[in-house]
Design a protein around this nucleic acid. Structure first.
Length: 473
DNA sequence: CGCATTTGACCAGCGC
DNA sequence: GCGCTGGTCAAATGCG
């Protein structure tokens, strides 16, 4: 026996002079309930059939006079009544759940839209910054050229030679083989895209033809960061260096790829030698990496990756490759939607990057724009280094952001703007989980793969297989 | 013997 | 022009 507060039409009935009534739950109909309305004054019973909303409005509560009394009814139908009530309760629960999920979905859509807006705004800022830097460098170059021309003008009697110099860059642009480095450099500053293509073309057939699709040759090092920023995303990604700092006693972190050591040098200011490795998983793979211990803390292993794999990667290598490639691509692609940086991976990083809660910094003060992933910070301490007076911050793709989580020290970029996107607290838990996994797991690749797998819900078969993907070193 | 590593030499960029 | 430095090459060496 319980009281039922009925909304709508039945409530109107209860508020009338025939307030007391009986609800007949024995009816077979689910949408109609027979109510025997009892007149208070003469106790006459008037059978009524009301259309009841059997959905969400049922509330079990005692409401004093304004209530309807439900009788147990006929004992032989008691089971059916119970079943009916259970079904209705279940239905209402499902509808409540559905509503809750809908509202949650709406929230998520809103958040996604907000993040997309932030991302687009940030990309616009990056592009504006690049244009600004490009213009300023072009002005400086013009000034420099003018000064040098004025110097030459003192030595050159004929004015015609100066006019020739002014025309030189445009002319050189159309030449296949620039005759000297200075003119080449002028050419490079003219049209970034064309120039990078030119560089690539020049290298093919040379002694480094194997690397024609790969790393920056020494000539490319002449390019300053502003020029690098002007490159096409595809080319720029190859020139971008992704550096990973991790604590490890091992001489090299296991990242799932096969590497061959081709050199070792003592670097200035560091007692530990720097080892040079190239990827040997495919002939002509342009990917290089440098491994060096930190001078300050020799337990920290600094691994720098350059280039893009030209072959399929094993699952264990996929995580790192996707992460580093996405980092480089993220940094240099601006607003492009190209997934070029993820080439040869089956890991659709961008498709699983709805949110990002991490702040990162990029260093463009080096010859290469360098993305630094710092895994040495204490976990869950959301912080980033400030090693340059001005920096530009933007969110990371989720594979990096969530894998490296709050350990991410940041990407530093010597620019004059600073903006910070709002972090989203709901990701902190996932970040803690993944970063904790990395911290606890001595095998870097395993932790990466496991973390990413957990992030994408196992949609991609990233499986850590240490026995088959061990590093050759 | 084949492959990976080591290591000195070489090259190019850059600053003075 | 010279020296320093980073990066790469290739012969020598080691290892299974």
């Amino acid at each position: 026996m319980f009281s039922v507060n009925l909304n709508g039409r039945e409530e109107q009935e209860s508020s009338s002079s025939m307030a007391l009534g009986e609800v007949d739950f024995f009816s077979d109909k689910t949408d109609h309930i027979h109510i025997a309305v009892v007149n208070k004054e003469d106790n006459s019973v008037t059978p009524r059939e009301l259309e009841l909303n059997t959905g969400l409005q049922l509330v079990t509560a005692n409401t004093g006079n304004d209530q309807s009394t439900v009788e147990d009814g006929i004992s032989s139908d008691r089971d059916r009544v119970e079943d009916n009530k259970l079904a209705k309760n279940e239905l209402s629960e499902l509808q409540v759940e559905l509503q809750r999920m809908n509202s949650e979905n709406q929230k998520l859509r809103g958040m996604l839209a907000q993040v997309n807006n932030n991302y687009n705004a940030l990309n616009m800022q990056v592009e504006a910054l690049m244009h600004q830097q490009k213009n300023s460098s072009a002005e400086k170059r013009k000034i420099g050229e003018r000064k040098s021309q004025e110097k030459k003008e003192k030595n050159v009697e004929s004015r015609d030679s100066r006019q020739f110099m002014d025309l030189a860059p445009a002319t050189m642009n159309e030449m296949d083989e620039p005759s000297n480095s200075s003119s080449e450099e002028r050419t490079l500053s003219g049209s970034p895209h064309t120039n990078m293509e030119l560089l690539r073309t020049k290298r093919v057939g040379g002694k480094e033809s194997l690397e024609s699709d790969g790393l920056a040759p020494n000539k490319v090092l002449k390019l300053n960061p502003s020029k690098l920023l002007d490159q096409t995303p595809e080319t720029a990604t190859r020139k971008t260096r992704v550096s990973v700092r991790a604590r490890s006693e091992a001489p090299m972190i296991s990242d799932g790829c096969q590497w061959r050591k081709y050199g070792q040098k003592m670097a200035k200011g560091n007692p530990c030698p720097r080892a040079y490795y190239r990827c040997t998983m495919a002939v002509g793979c342009p990917v290089r990496k440098h491994v060096q211990r930190c001078a300050d803390d020799q337990t920290i292993l600094i691994t720098s990756y350059e280039g893009k794999h030209n072959h399929p990667l094993p699952p264990a290598a996929l995580a790192m490759a996707s992460t580093t490639s996405a980092a480089a691509d993220m940094f240099l692609s601006g607003s492009t939607t190209s997934t070029d940086g993820l080439m040869n991976t089956t890991f659709p990083a961008r498709t699983i990057l709805p949110y990002s809660s991490n702040i990162a910094t990029i260093s463009a003060s080096t010859p290469f724009p360098t993305v630094t992933l710092d895994l040495t910070q204490p976990q869950n301490s959301l912080q980033f280094h400030r090693t340059s007076p001005a920096q530009f911050q933007f969110p990371l793709p989720v594979p990096m952001a969530q894998v490296f989580g709050s350990k991410f020290s940041g990407l530093q970029m010597s620019q004059d703007i600073e903006s910070t996107l709002p972090s989203q607290a709901e990701h902190h838990h996932a970040l803690k989980v993944t970063t904790a996994a990395i911290t606890a797991d001595p095998n870097f690749t395993s932790a990466l793969a496991a973390a990413i797998t957990s992030i994408i819900g196992g949609a991609h078969p990233i499986v850590s297989d240490n026995s088959t993907n061990n590093n050759s070193n």
